[in-house]
Design a protein around this nucleic acid. Structure first.
Lengths: 240, 240
DNA sequence: GAGCATACCTACTCGTGCGTAATGTTACGC
DNA sequence: GCGTAACATTACGCACGAGTAGGTATGCTC
């Protein structure tokens, strides 16, 4: 009586989003199994039956989280890598968008991802997402290859694409565990190793992001003598 | 009467190994949480209290599994990549050993790895393992750099090493999910993208394992499939 | 303000599975 | 042969957490 309504009544759509927000937080913090529905409900400022009424079982709730976050991420990437750009530029933008997104969602995204990979029953949604990503990357590579009149078996391409995506995922994990790290810088370094390769890097060749100094975007000029200011030993390849 | 003693009495060391074998199998098949101690005990042909007596709690048991498998893997890698070889050769051998190991243990290793990453409480052991791997790779890169009189900050090196290790881990996952895939071939492809980079690959530059081009070592392994002929339609860049 | 639908709650059931106490049983020393 | 200690089993305590039943308050429409 004295306190009044205590808690507000909110429309379903809003509450659902609140629940998903809390669920992502809790799942990330505790892991899928250790997270209890009670805790999630409490974090959302709501009681458990409401969660069941709106989002279904625990598994369905988790998949809903994964789906929402995954869709957001995909949109971020797709929006960044326009299909009419050269391959390295697309790769760079996609990478930047990806790591940028993860960096902005730190504890949120990467952990969901890890959880989903571990649990058989949750892996389906994730598999679809990653398959789309690999497909995009493979398509990009294929496109670039055709432009050069070359051709490669799909399986080969898939492995390369998978390696690229996998390396990015791992760096996403790394980012999640290193709050002080800069996504932008990490993306550049990843781009260096992915596009140029470790061998080139060791010889001092570097790739640089949006090329403003020279006309060319990257120096494929072979030859061990690096003409970067890298000799100073300070800044690695490139800092955007 | 017909069965006789039913179950044999075995020395502790042997039983422990049996238990670990079963535990790895069950954990891999079911996942950490879904695996029950009863099932593991049954698979080992033993009863539950024995498991507790020898290996402790469920968590301790899992860590023991991870530790044993991880140590074996580390030994395989360390034994392959001698420190007095050139960087690319070391990377190649390490990669080969790593993916070869995973390929030989398919369901065993990769799944343990995934489980461990998901669960906070299990991650410690894994973190140590991976840190050692990253350290090795970073050390290798650093060594190669010094040989050229160049120098790079440790953090930069770590990121590159992490990307390399991460990409390899992802391919290990891929291998685990693709029983028909050939670890050797996958390792070569990984080496291509890691050492040469996607940019070089797209231009048709390829890396090849040993110094000899047409000798044994690792031909494209025609394999059973007729239409899978990698040699058809010109020399693809990625094929060794 | 009556009637209805929707948002929301407290308090419970019930299965599951970790970890252990009480209890045989086999092998070896003497 | 007979004690004894390591080996092995059955059966249970107990906590925890997913999912639900049934009831209450609030807003909306007429």
């Amino acid at each position: 009586m004295s306190t009044g309504p205590a808690f507000k009544r909110l429309p379903r759509a809003v509450r659902q989003q609140q629940m998903l927000d809390s669920a992502v937080r809790i799942f990330s913090r505790r892991g899928y199994h250790s997270a209890s529905m009670d805790e999630i409900a409490e974090a959302a400022g709501i009681s458990k039956p409401m969660v069941y009424a709106y989002l279904g079982t625990k598994e369905e709730l988790f998949v809903a989280c994964l789906h929402r976050e995954g869709t957001r991420m995909m949109e971020a990437i797709a929006g960044a890598a326009a299909p009419d750009l050269p391959a390295d530029e697309r790769l760079w933008r996609g990478l930047r968008a990806f790591l940028g997104f993860v960096g902005a969602h730190r504890d949120g995204w990467a952990v969901l991802y890890r959880q989903a990979r571990a649990e058989q029953s949750l892996a389906r949604e994730l598999t679809v997402m990653r398959a789309r990503l690999v497909e995009v990357v493979a398509g990009m590579l294929n496109h670039a290859l055709r432009a050069e009149g070359r051709q490669v078996a799909d399986t080969e391409l898939e492995v390369v694409a998978y390696a690229l995506v996998g390396a990015s995922e791992s760096l996403a994990d790394w980012l999640a565990d290193h709050p002080e790290a800069d996504p932008e810088k990490t993306a550049t370094q990843m781009m260096n190793v992915a596009w140029l390769g470790a061998g080139q890097l060791l010889h001092g060749v570097t790739w640089r992001p949006a090329g403003m100094p020279a006309t060319r975007r990257h120096r494929t000029t072979p030859g061990p003598g690096a003409e970067r200011g890298a000799a100073s030993g300070g800044p690695p390849p490139v800092t955007p």
